[in-house]
Every structure is written in C-alpha cells, then in structure tokens.
Simulated scan of single mutants.
Amino acid sequence: MERCRHAVLGVERPLRLDCGVDLGPYRVAYQTYGTLNADKSNAVLICHALTGDQFPSEQHPVTGKEGWWEKLVGPGRILDPARYFIICSNVLGGCMGSTGPQAANPATGEAWNLRFPVVTIADMVRAQAALIDHLGIPDLFCVIGGSMGGMQVLEWAASHASRVFSAVPIACAARHSAQNIAFHEVGRQAIMADPEWKGGDYRLHQTVPARGLAVARMTAHITYLSEQALQRKFGRALQDRNALGFGFDADFQVESYLRHQGSTFVDRFDANSYLYITRAMDYFDLAAAHGGVLANAFKGTPTRFCLFSFTSDWLFPTRESREIVHALNAAAANVSFVEVESDKGHDAFLLDEPEMFRTLSGFLKGAASARGLKGVA
C-alpha cells in the first residue's frame, strides 16, 4: 500500500475556524487510491466517521487490520480505484497525522493538548476543501460518508455545492440529537475523570488515560449496535466458564467483547482527539447557519443526492434521514432515499449490506452517465 501523504496547508492563508481562531500552518494527512483522469472528473472524497481515519481500504499501517470500508472500496468493488480517484483524509482534530491536539503548536513548539482550538464539522470540511485545492481538483464527482462522515457530506453539499456533483450521506443527521450529545458527554467525562488524563497534558507526564478512553469507547460502541445484533451474537453466553463467577470479572461474552473493544481502541486513538471530535459532532446543526430552515441549506443545489438509513439504527434513526430528504425535496433537489432493512444497528453502513450496495452502485452509474464519466457504467 502507498504510504499516507501529508499536505502542509495554511502557510500563506491560515484556516479561519468557527471559534474565531486562525489556524496555520496545519497538516492534512490523506491517502489516495487510483488515478485522476485527464479532465479531473473522477475524484471521489470519502469522509470518515468518529473513530475512522484515512485508510478505508487495504491493510491499516497501525493496526495491521483490513481497511474500515474494505467491503466498499477496492479492486472490483463499488468504489474501484480502476474507475475513480479516491481520496480520504484524516479530519482536522484527528490523531492520524492531521493537525489536532497532539500536534505541536507552531507558536510554542509544544503539543497543543487542550489548548488546541475547538473545531467543527464545517472546519473539517474547510480543511478538506483546501486539500482538494492543493491537489488541483476543481470539483468532486462524489462525496460519500457515514455517521460523522455523513455530516461532512451534508456540509460539503451545503457549503460547496458547485464542487459536489453527487453526495451520499449515510446513517447520519442534519444535527446531533440530545441523546447523542448525552452519550458523548458520558465518554468525555470518563476520559477526564481518569487520573492519568492530567488535565489533557498526559504526554508531558508520560501517561495515558487508558481506562477512561476505554470506557468511552465501550459506551459508544454499544450505541453502534442494535439489541438484536447483541442478542444474536452474544445472548447471555458465558465467557470461558461453565458457571457464574459471583464476582466482577467478565462473566458474560458481551462483557469480554466490550472490554476488548476498549483496550484495542486505546492502542490506536488519542484521548484528547476523542474529546475534540465528539464535540465537533455535538455542535453540528446544519439548519442553524441557514436561518433555522434546513431546506435553505440546499437552496438551488445542483448536487445529486442518495441517502441511506437502517431500520435498526437507533443512534441515527430513519426519521432523521427523512428530515433531510424532506428538506431536499423542499429545495427541489435531485434526491433518492433508501431505508435498508437490517438488524445490525448503526454499524450496518460498514458491513455487508447487499441492498445498500445495489442501490449505491445504481446511483453512481446514473451519476456517472449524467456527468459523462466513462468507464464506470
């Protein structure tokens, strides 16, 4: 696999963040697959979710595991590098090479830690747009992503409509709900309550708030699954024992599974980045910047949309996708919508979902035909 690239941006023109801070220079770490065609019309931007990164396909350089969207991205798959020039960048505030709280503050030479400015989904998209400029791509054939990635897709379509030919927001919402903010706050408090967090300066003390970050991950991971999926996979099966232990070790397989999710997450993710990225999701409210009317965000849009939701997703339920669809209809946008029958919960967008794949394939072929993009249909 090609090594991840880093673009150093904002040297001459800093990025103005929503919080009022001018950030620059800043780095955007990104990965590409495939080749940009002669007229630069086949570029696809993948936007990753909260715990994702710029490696949706092939072996991950840190974990050694397959890419997080391996079922969708790769040779012979729907997003085939033989057809598209695929770009995926680590979000601003992330911990896989893009500027975030773990990066050095150019003014001091020391890690930003909690002195890093709070970023928003719109800030993440502005950094991605600067990267697309840096790559010399005037507009994107498609912007696609699920969960927080879907929020970025919506922001792209609202703020850079002329640069987005087609948009695929999956399992997302136009604003974060009170319930989701509440779950994020539990995770943040778990991290900040860990004595090894040290007010965000744990690197200076050569510590890691591993327990707090693991609990945050465990809590969030429950929201990514459905009750049916948990019951089908684990039920009340015991973990490596034939009887209850009458203690507080992991008696049940589901407990062991969550502990494993927490411990492995600590190995690849930064605690402060978790604080910043969850906060960015909490602040997301697309209608707020358009007079409180979501349809205004898409007024006059030339972008073609295809939205997906999943029947068992209680983190971003179908009704929130329907609100986006209704807003797009009110703006007379070209929009398709599919609610996929699945018992896999929110994580279904990362898994093998034939109905989603069939619909997405048909949508992209239609969009390619409308754009005159050869070699896709």
Rank of each mutant, 00 (worst) to 15 (best):
M1P: 06
E2W: 07
H6V: 15
L9I: 10
L9D: 08
G10R: 00
L15M: 10
R16Y: 09
R16W: 12
V21C: 06
Y26Q: 13
A29E: 09
Y33K: 00
T35G: 03
T35W: 05
A38D: 14
N42I: 10
N42K: 08
L45P: 02
L45V: 15
C47H: 04
T51P: 02
Q54M: 05
F55T: 14
F55K: 06
F55W: 14
P56E: 02
P61H: 05
E66W: 11
G67E: 01
W68C: 09
W69M: 11
W69G: 07
R77K: 15
D80Y: 08
Y84K: 05
C88F: 07
C95F: 02
G97I: 12
G100C: 06
A104Y: 07
A104F: 11
A104S: 12
N105P: 00
N105F: 07
A107P: 00
W112Q: 08
N113H: 11
R115G: 15
V125R: 00
A130N: 06
F141C: 10
G145Q: 10
S147R: 01
M151C: 05
S162P: 01
V164P: 03
F165T: 14
A167R: 07
A167D: 06
V168K: 02
V168N: 03
C172H: 02
A174W: 14
S177G: 11
A182S: 15
R188Y: 05
M192D: 08
A193R: 14
D194W: 08
E196F: 10
K198V: 05
G199M: 10
D201C: 13
T207M: 07
V208D: 04
L213I: 13
A214N: 00
V215L: 04
L225I: 04
F234H: 14
A237E: 13
R241Y: 10
N242D: 15
A250W: 01
F252Y: 14
Q253H: 09
Y257R: 00
L258I: 00
H260Y: 09
H260D: 00
G262Q: 02
G262F: 01
F269W: 02
D270Y: 05
I277M: 08
I277E: 00
A280W: 03
A280V: 07
F284D: 05
F284I: 08
D285C: 06
G291F: 08
F298Y: 14
G300T: 13
T301K: 08
P302E: 11
T311D: 12
S312K: 04
D313G: 12
F316T: 14
F316M: 11
R319W: 05
R322G: 01
I324K: 01
H326K: 12
L328F: 05
A333P: 00
A333F: 04
N334P: 02
F337V: 07
F337A: 09
V338S: 11
E339K: 05
E341I: 11
A348Q: 12
L351W: 11
L351I: 03
E355G: 04
F357E: 15
T359N: 09
L360R: 09
G362F: 01
F363T: 14
A367M: 04
